[in-house]
Design a protein around this nucleic acid. Structure first.
Length: 941
RNA sequence: UGGAGUGUAGCUCAGUGGGAGAGCAUCCCCUUCACACGGGGAGGGUCGUAGGUUCAAUCCCUAUCACUCCAACCA
């Protein structure tokens, strides 16, 4: 079914503003898409239809759009719009993430500003209580959620808003509880006392991923541990009779308070006599065993290692291997615990100073040197996170990781660029159990209840009405106060958003999703965990392709950050230049494997591109209106493509040419989208629309339009058809401007209702339009025009100055060519007339002095321009000399090649032939140029 | 320490086994009836360095340097 719309919305050139002004229409157009339900997917595919689905990487609900969002959402929107136009049942599902720590921190900051608590300190969440604080946070969420979603709309994202989800909405919370309970029942979730990263400032546990290893300048302190016999008193002697001691270097001297052993390598001969002895812990005097463990590197430092199992991940492992006591000296409050003796109550940094001071005084510090150390910073607040031992909930990750590894190994999931697979494997092979409990309030509270009566734990989907273990009343049960890591709920995103655990139609239609597009910085946080959860709970991978885009940086290549003040705000850019230019810029730079260095200059350039398209459309309207005034009619139910195909042989060469070139553009754009090389598509569109369509086609169409009649009519059809096709091709990348312009077209085809470009079929290349003959003709035309423009430019001739050109044709065909196209040639090169030189078949020797001579090979003609009154002879001589030099270089190059026997023997014959031919052409050209130069010289004398 | 990526015109980036391209910036000419958010012309690069394969290398291989990112248990 098709319908021609050529009245209602058809607007003349006058209705399009003078230039591209995106502010005039972007918001209106987005609203019209929403009103018409254009973004909505169907739960069930139509017969023969494919589903295409993607989930948005949910931005933080209280976040603000940054360039990274702009990039990922532009890319995703392109894919989605393209698939929609290809006829797929297309779902792009929106939503936001509750972002536990980030959101809670913002609300805490707000209440702190509001007043003082009972102790006179700023209000904290504890002053409000859990319930009131959560109410505040929900309110905050309601107030801020629209910010980011509104910004996504400004960008043009065609998300199915009716399906918008939030990681803490009822459905997703149910999914979270379901997953937690099932994993618990399968022994894949457990609660245990383990070493974890703790942020003393945020007062919560963090996963390994949430601490950023950072290099800081520090020191190596060499500390003496004296060695005694088992009795704890008698010094052990070295072979030479001196008292045995172990000098151990550390970057964190304060941790010695929690040392429970010192270790040496079992094969270290130097310390064999210390095996089984005791070390005296400096300052505290506690006796700790000397143990042997192959983890210790003999070559490093003194070969001795202090072991602090409660505050170091490696020491923790050693401690477990050797059944060492775990002494927690660093408390959750950031201060030394009572186990730290006289250091108790000191902040960690203070304790370090005191320990060093005391060691010095006890003469146990033998050396201090500079050393860089690695510390873990809290991802959120950038304070130092300390490893401490604490009771937390964990996901036993090994059994989940195994199939997730296999999915990528087998190619069931493919990463692009492929190199990221290596990174993925590396992490997955060495994955550690995932600490999922957080000591926060904002999040999914852990569905575990502790019975005050029998002390048992109950994990359940809903709050139990009595203790299932001992039958105690609900009042005895207390729910775990902790909440889950935010990423726990995001891991379920591809299926929880589609209604899981219910078996919904949507789930059936859209899972697995087609593609995941995201940043490489969340491969571990998000991608890997979605793969694990998807396979475990859905029995299938959540997606088959993972596309990872680059990072957006500023024009100098620095990371954008508020503190550096180099942030380019996408919304400001959209306000100033429009969403389409920003989208086009990001797309054209989104080649994989390279960071995107964004500059506003670039956006301005593409704004110029939008303006160019805008004005090309205005040109169409101008011509169309003029034709209408002359009474040139358009047949009812007009199908331009059909008409053009039917009348192909009678079309003007430029019309056939642009139709032919259009097919190449369509193929390039399509291939770019298929291969996920969106920058290729963008480039193809840019080159075709600007440099072929605008630069040449529109210029060449002006004559037929002036001429009127059939020539004008077929040209207006061609112009319309090409414009409409280009609009559709560009639409996925630049949705707004293409919709606005498409709506203005008088006989656009509405194949699919509602009448919006975003639902019309994406163009397909049609070989019937391919036309090598017209391509050849226009190439020849361009070469004559360019030669004349070059002559004009080199001699600084104003376009106002018109001059006649005499020509000598090298063949009958060339003569015909010039005569046939003299009008076009004259118009585009501003030549007053072309005059053929009769007779004189003597080759390049003819012509009077005082003429510029421009020899061409395709078409084989020689152009002559009388210099009298036009240019000064010396200028023209310079141009000639330059030309001659250029040709001479060409000749030398070709001859060098042809003089090599191996080249003649081994290179393809066609190539050799081609080079020979070129040699001949070059030599002839040089002769003519030289002859012209001679005559000019004669003139000067 | 491992892994990956990048190195092409002043800047930002495309690109290909057969003589190096675009946009911006620079210089010159133009308000010519779609567009000065424009048109035309010009200058500018031994395609990081050194070897190798090939008739032919900016492209393939090897080494090397520089920068960037990722993962790391050397206290």
């Amino acid at each position: 079914m098709s319908e021609i719309d050529r009245s209602g919305t058809a607007v003349g050139a006058n209705s399009l503003s003078k230039s591209y002004e995106p502010q005039q229409f972007e918001t209106r157009i987005y609203q019209s898409w929403l009103d018409q339900g254009c973004f909505e997917a169907k739960d069930q595919n139509a017969p023969g239809q494919n589903a295409f689905s993607m989930v948005i990487p949910p931005p933080n609900v209280t976040g603000v759009l940054h360039m990274g969002h702009a990039l990922t959402n532009t890319i995703q929107d392109i894919l989605v719009r393209w698939h929609r136009m290809m006829g797929d049942n297309t779902l792009w599902l929106p939503g936001t993430d509750h972002a536990g720590i980030a959101t809670q921190a913002q609300v805490e900051k707000q209440i702190a500003k509001e007043g003082k608590g009972p102790t006179g300190k700023p209000l904290t969440r504890h002053d409000l209580g859990r319930e009131a604080f959560l109410a505040r946070t929900w309110k905050w969420k309601e107030e801020h959620a629209n910010t980011i979603t509104g910004q996504l709309k400004r960008l043009g994202s065609s998300l199915d808003w009716k399906r918008e989800r939030f990681t803490m909405d009822e459905g997703l919370s149910q999914a979270v509880r379901e997953v937690f309970v099932r994993l618990y029942e399968e022994d894949l979730i457990y609660r245990g006392e383990r070493i974890i990263n703790w942020c003393p400032r945020c007062q919560t546990a963090l996963s390994d991923l949430e601490t950023i290893p950072t290099e800081r300048k520090g020191h190596f302190w060499h500390i003496v541990y004296k060695i005694v016999e088992a009795d704890g008193v008698t010094p052990v002697k070295n072979a030479d009779g001196t008292p045995a001691e172990l000098v151990i270097a550390t970057t964190r001297p304060e941790t010695l308070l929690g040392d429970t052993a010192v270790a040496v390598n079992p094969d270290d001969e130097r310390y064999r006599h210390l095996h089984g002895k005791q070390a005296v812990l400096p300052l505290l005097g506690r006796l700790i065993p000397v143990i042997t463990d192959s983890y210790v590197d003999k070559e490093f430092g003194s070969g001795g290692l202090k072991v602090t199992p409660a505050h170091d991940f490696n020491d923790y492992e050693i401690g477990k291997r050797h059944n060492l006591p775990f002494i927690s000296v660093m408390g959750k409050d950031g201060r030394i615990t009572p186990a730290g003796g006289s250091y108790a109550g000191l902040k960690f940094a203070e304790a370090r100073e005191r320990v060093i001071q005391d060691l010095k005084e006890a003469q146990l510090l033998v050396k201090t040197e500079d050393h860089a150390l690695k510390i873990g910073l809290c991802q959120r607040c950038e304070n130092i996170a300390e490893p401490i031992v604490s009771k937390q909930w964990f996901v036993k990750i090994g059994p989940l990781a195994k199939p997730a590894i296999e999915a990528v190994e087998s190619g069931k999931i493919q990463f692009s660029p492929k190199s990221w697979e290596k990174t993925y494997f590396e992490w997955m092979y060495n994955i550690r159990d995932w600490c999922i409990s957080r000591q926060l309030w904002w999040g999914h509270q852990i569905p575990a209840w502790y019975c005050g009566h029998c002390q048992e734990v109950t994990v359940a989907r809903e709050a139990p009405t009595k203790c299932p273990k001992c039958g105690a009343a609900a009042s005895e049960l207390k729910q775990d106060e902790d909440v889950l890591d935010t990423w726990f709920s995001s891991a379920l995103w591809p299926f929880s958003t589609l209604g899981w655990p219910e078996k919904t139609r949507a789930l059936e239609t859209f899972y697995p999703t087609s593609i995941l597009e995201t940043g490489f910085d969340i491969i571990f946080f998000w991608v890997a965990r979605m793969i694990m959860m998807g396979i475990h709970f859905m029995g299938d991978v959540p997606f088959h392709k993972v596309y990872l885009h680059a990072m957006v940086r500023d024009e100098k290549g620095d990371k954008m950050s508020k503190s550096k003040g180099n942030v380019i705000d996408p919304l400001v850019v959209i306000d100033q230049h429009g969403a389409d230019p920003l989208r086009f810029t990001l797309t054209s730079m989104a080649g994989q494997g390279r960071d995107i260095k964004l500059s506003v200059d670039r956006v301005e350039n593409f704004r110029g591109f939008c303006n160019k398209i805008w004005n090309a459309t205005k040109f169409f309207h101008l011509q169309f209106d003029a034709l209408k005034d002359k009474g040139v009619g358009i047949p009812a139910d007009f199908d331009a493509e059909k008409w053009l195909l039917g009348n192909l042989p009678t079309l003007l060469p430029q019309n056939r040419w642009i139709l032919s070139r259009l097919q190449v553009a369509i193929a390039r754009v399509q291939k770019g989208f298929e291969d996920f090389e969106l920058n290729e598509s963008a480039q193809a569109l840019y080159e075709f629309s600007w440099h072929e369509f605008c630069d040449w086609y529109i210029e060449l169409s002006k004559l037929p339009f002036r001429e009127g009649g059939d020539a004008a009519q077929q040209s207006i059809y061609t112009l319309h058809y090409v414009l409409e096709t280009v609009m559709k091709l560009m639409h996925p990348i630049m949705p707004f401007v293409t919709e606005e312009l498409w709506q203005s077209l008088p006989f656009k085809r509405v194949v699919q209702k509602p009448a919006t470009i975003m639902l019309q079929p994406f163009p397909k290349a049609n070989a019937a339009f391919t036309d090598s003959e017209s391509e050849q003709t226009i190439a020849a035309l361009k070469s004559v025009i360019e030669a004349l423009r070059n002559f004009r430019g080199e001699n600084n001739l104003s376009p106002k100055v018109e001059f006649p050109v005499r020509y000598r044709a090298g063949s009958v065909g060339a003569d015909t060519f010039i005569r046939l196209h003299s009008a076009d040639l004259q118009a585009l090169s501003r030549v007053s007339k072309f005059e053929r030189i009769e007779g004189d078949h003597g080759g390049g020797s003819g012509g009077s002095s005082g003429e510029a001579i421009i020899p061409l090979t395709n078409p084989p003609v020689e152009l002559r321009i009388s210099l009298a009154g036009l240019v000064n002879v010396e200028e023209e001589s310079k141009r000639l000399v330059k030309e001659i030099e250029k040709v001479s270089e060409d000749i030398a190059f070709v001859q060098r090649k042809l003089s090599q026997e191996t080249f003649i023997a081994k290179a393809p014959k066609e190539l050799v032939e081609k080079e020979r031919k070129r040699e001949g052409e070059f030599v002839a050209k040089r002769q003519e140029l030289q002859a012209a130069l001679e005559r000019l010289k004669a003139l000067v004398k």
